[in-house]
């Protein structure tokens, strides 16, 4: 495989990997990107930048990646198929690879109806699995989706997402298998709050031997407030937030809720480290990037290899 990212190096060495999300600004404010990058530097192996998450206009993932990369961190560009057809996707893949981005996360993207431009036309010329195949074909066969050949091909470590909590549950492992078969090298999962269900899913993943073919990074989101927990439980489709978690947050004094949220995140990481097949974590501290170093240190994952 022609990919040589730091994330790949860490995962291949068998070390427990750490990635984190860096939310791009809804403006041209590069200062905030640099600020977030400085906070994350040293605590993580690579950072993801979302690509129009929840279909809200923000700075392009690739542009934010390049700005933050100047601080010496390794980016994972997120690329959704919502806003670009196969022509635009391949043009961007060439561009990000030429500009030194070494990891890509292939996604379908949130539906336009959730965002701030609900009248926009969703593209979805290809789906996330077809995008994985396109990137792999470009990287490994020096060919575009059309079959046309290229001289210098993109050297990208290919990622995909997985949601163990969405229905139909029985199809969630076969779906992962499809992503692996088409070329996913690593997986970043949906936020895990229901550890039991995740463990159940991982068990099937390991039974199928998929953990030996793909590196699975478990998704972690520290909860800042009870409102945020309830919002994720009730408003974000595909999210599984058990009542016991909300009860626990409600059992502490209001001023300690975010501390409890951090504690839960650290405990979750420690539990997930024990789950067979989990190769690392992906921290999605939404608009709370400053908490990442503390969580990584508390979880005993600092310093990074």
């Amino acid at each position: 495989m022609k990919a040589n990212s730091n994330l790949k190096r860490v995962l291949d060495s068998g070390k427990f990997a750490v990635t984190a999300e860096l939310g791009p600004p809804a403006s041209t404010d590069s200062k905030i990107i640099n600020k977030k990058a400085k906070i994350l530097k040293g605590s993580i192996d690579a950072f993801n930048v979302t690509d129009g998450q929840t279909a809200v206009v923000r700075m392009a993932s690739w542009a934010t990646c390049l700005i933050a990369k100047q601080q010496g961190l390794e980016p994972i560009v997120q690329m959704t198929t919502r806003d670009r057809n196969r022509i635009a996707l391949q043009m961007d893949i060439l561009g990000v690879a030429a500009l030194g981005i070494k990891n890509i996360l292939c996604l379908t993207g949130d539906h336009t109806s959730f965002g701030n431009h609900p009248k926009a036309k969703g593209v979805w010329d290809v789906d996330s699995i077809q995008l994985i195949r396109i990137v792999k074909k470009m990287r490994d066969e020096n060919k575009f989706a059309s079959g046309d050949e290229m001289d210098v091909s993109p050297s990208l470590y290919i990622g995909a997402s997985a949601n163990p909590f969405a229905e139909p549950f029985e199809f969630r492992v076969p779906r992962l298998a499809k992503k692996v078969a088409e070329g996913a090298d690593f997986i970043q999962t949906q936020c895990i709050f229901n550890i039991q269900k995740f463990t159940e899913w991982m068990k099937i993943v390991c039974e199928k031997g998929l953990h030996t073919k793909v590196k699975i990074l478990a998704g972690i989101t520290p909860i800042k407030s009870i409102g945020a927990a309830k919002y994720m439980k009730n408003k974000v489709p595909g999210m599984d937030v058990p009542d016991s978690l909300i009860d626990r947050l409600e059992s502490v004094p209001k001023e300690n809720v975010s501390k409890e949220g951090i504690k839960i995140a650290v405990e979750t990481i420690q539990k997930l480290q024990q789950v067979e097949g989990v190769a690392g974590i992906h921290l999605m501290a939404i608009e709370w990037e400053e908490i990442v170093p503390e969580i990584i240190k508390s979880a005993g994952l600092y310093p990074r290899p």
Binding site: R82, T108, G109, D110, H111, S113, F114, G122, W124, D127, S128, I129, Q130, S161, A162, N163, A166, E167, P168, F171, P174, R175, K178, Q190, P237, G238, D240
Partner: peptide, 21 residues
């Protein structure tokens, strides 16, 4: 499927099997 996906459901399928959209 509102996203027209050809290789299976997105990650947004609800617990009751309904569509995220």
């Amino acid at each position: 499927c509102p996203k027209g996906l050809l290789n299976g459901p997105c990650g947004g399928t609800r617990q009751d099997g309904k569509c995220e959209v």
